[in-house]
């Protein structure tokens, strides 16, 4: 759990409910041995600054070689190849271009039920000053979209992203999907 800023406690609760272990990551020495990393929702400008100040950028890029990474909202922005309106470079681990605050200000934040690939029934997707995916590369599999076709969740190999916050609902299925990826990555190494 990247625990620099944001709703990492909410993610931790979900992951523990699913029976997995979760530890907070604030410094590079907390990374070894992890099978997965969640970059939570929060303020992307704050998280990316703290990431660089405390030397986590390179170690996370290396971790991505052997572990699964899941980013929600701000986490999706950080994992994207490119983010509009963000001064710092992103981690670039998934071939998508994202737009920050794509839906407007907080009064435009919303929730809606959306179908999610591989899940039998829709997930309740909570969008808070959310980003969206403007462009997805050919290697990217889109997992959920808005009715107008805008992708809002996607996966490329061991990297999973969502513009919304599955950690804010009681539904644990998206995290379950991620833990599956983490297990797969741990088997491969």
């Amino acid at each position: 759990m990247l625990a620099l800023q944001g709703d990492f406690a909410e993610h931790t609760d979900v992951v523990r409910r699913l029976g997995a272990e979760a530890i907070p990551v604030r410094l590079p020495q907390h990374l070894p041995g992890l099978h997965g990393l969640i970059i939570p929702g929060g303020e992307s400008t704050t998280i990316v600054r703290l990431l660089d100040i405390f030397g986590l950028r390179q170690p996370i890029l290396e971790l991505a070689q052997r572990a699964a990474i899941f980013g929600t909202c701000a986490g999706m922005i950080l994992l994207a190849k490119q983010a509009t309106d963000l001064a710092q470079p992103t981690l670039g681990l998934i071939d998508i271009v994202v737009q920050r605050n794509a839906f407007g200000r907080q009064v435009d934040s919303f929730e809606a039920a959306l179908p999610f690939k591989g899940l039998a029934t829709p997930v309740q997707a909570v969008f808070i000053r959310a980003p969206l995916i403007l462009k997805a590369g050919p290697a990217v599999e889109v997992l959920a979209s808005l009715p107008d076709g805008t992708p809002v969740a996607a996966r490329q190999g061991n990297i999973l992203v969502a513009a919304f916050h599955p950690e804010l609902t009681a539904d644990t299925r998206v995290h379950g999907y991620f833990l599956g990826l983490a297990q797969e990555s741990s088997r491969l190494c």
């Binding site: 625990a3 620099l4 800023q5 944001g6 709703d7 990492f8 406690a9 909410e10 929702g41 929060g42 303020e43 704050t46 909202c73 701000a74 907080q106 934040s109 909570v126 808070i128 000053r129 916050h165 804010l168």
Partner: peptide, 10 residues
């Protein structure tokens, strides 16, 4: 409530 949750630790 969710936006406040995103501000946590900040």
């Amino acid at each position: 409530k969710g936006l406040a949750q995103m501000l946590k630790g900040g």
